[in-house]
Amino acid sequence: MSANIVLANMQAGITYQVTGFNTTSEDYATKLYKMGFVEGTPVELSSVKIADPIVVQIRGSRIALRKKEARQVLVRECNNA
């Protein structure tokens, strides 16, 4: 079992899974939650080369997030990836 990192620090080419939120903003967490950022959902950094905002692939969608705000989402490397 690998350690938690934040969404903003994901590396390209590795599949992660969402493990939770570390946030003070209820709105932000709820919004992402409803968009499908629930525990266990696979997520990866999209290959789009843009530094900030970052673009992630989740549930077949591309979602752009600010790097600073993406620090509130916790992910972990998928072991079976």
Binding site: S25, D27, Y28, K31, L32, M35, P53, V55, S61, R62, I63, A64, L65, R66, E69
Partner: peptide, 8 residues
């Protein structure tokens, strides 16, 4: 200021 989440 609010956050930014955008579906592409």
């Amino acid at each position: 200021p609010s956050h930014f989440v955008m579906d592409l």
